[in-house]
């Protein structure tokens, strides 16, 4: 319950923050993952750099066909943003599944992505949405695709001293159908599996399918085999079943007290089927 002693700073300016991070500071975003593990003494950063006062990291805006969300935008802000709900409903839906009211009030999209918990809700949608992350460090900025960003369990493309500053999300085709379906671990509320689906149809055929999966493997991933199987089909129940069955292809499933690897694999298929069915039915 009591963390180790640490130094604390709360810069209001991004540059200043990046400078402090460059000299070994640990970034604190919403703190929903970091603070609990600090309290259990599983983490003991010497210097915590609180990003919570950098106003310039908290925004949602639309620019030329993309939504831009500052890294410090909270799950609640995403969940309740009329802009996100209309222009990228999948992200709002995913945000509404995270944790609980209090966690959504504090937790941030940047913090969640940077933590790269293999069972977090956001990454499935971020994968399906093919977002990009703008990263910054004291030595400059760069943009990486979501696929390059999530590297492994709790491991991302972030270099020491580097943080996410922005998530860039393509505005959804208004005719697309989306859905995030999650099997909830009863104690923690984390996803046993979570599947985010985006479907675009044209002339009665699925022209584009995007499927992001969390909870199943060491990191969130795109189920490309499933996507391929669905694209070009009419999206019938049989088509969906076939695609859903392929959702776990090439992934070594996680196992824990709440779900064995085999069960998780099967549930990924079931929830992929559900997410795809809803998404297909919502696509116009």
């Amino acid at each position: 319950m009591i963390a180790h002693i640490f130094e604390y700073s709360a810069p209001t300016d991004l540059k200043e923050a990046l400078g402090q991070l460059a000299s070994g500071g640990k970034p604190l975003a919403g703190g929903m993952s970091l603070i609990p593990i600090m309290k259990l003494r599983l983490a003991a950063p010497e210097h915590v750099v609180d990003l919570g006062r950098i106003v310039a990291l908290n925004y949602i805006r639309e620019e030329a066909g993309t939504l831009h969300a500052g890294a410090m935008t909270t799950h609640y802000q995403i969940e309740s943003s009329p802009l996100v709900r209309s222009r990228c409903p999948l992200l709002a839906e995913a945000a509404s599944h995270i944790g609980d009211v209090q966690v959504r009030n504090m937790g941030t999209i940047g913090g969640s992505a940077a933590h790269a918990d293999p069972a977090a809700d956001y990454p499935a949608s971020l994968m399906a949405l093919e977002v990009q992350f703008r990263l910054a460090s004291s030595s400059g900025e760069r943009t990486v695709s979501v696929e390059d960003f999530f590297v492994d369990t709790f491991a991302t493309a972030l270099q020491p001293g580097e943080i996410i500053t922005e998530v860039i999300i393509p505005v959804e085709d208004p005719s697309a159908g989306v859905s995030y379906q999650k099997m909830v671990q009863p104690a923690s509320g984390y996803a046993i599996v979570g599947v985010a689906a985006r479907i675009t149809k044209s002339g009665g055929k699925v022209t584009k399918a995007r499927v992001g999966v969390t909870g199943l493997g060491p990191k969130a991933f795109r189920a490309k085999a499933a996507e391929k199987l669905l694209e070009g089909t009419e999206g019938t129940a049989a088509d969906i079943a076939k695609a859903a069955a392929a959702v776990s292809e090439g992934v070594e499933s996680n196992t824990d007290l709440h779900a064995s690897a085999n069960y998780r694999t099967q549930m990924a298929r079931v929830y992929a089927g559900r997410a795809l069915s809803v998404a297909v039915s919502r696509a116009t």
Partner: peptide, 25 residues
Amino acid sequence: LWEQAVYDDNGQLITGELMDYALPR
């Protein structure tokens, strides 16, 4: 439906927190 105190073979309580011991919500 949910609750169980699970010790592993070595006597470690692996439902040692509310993250794994599922109370009714």
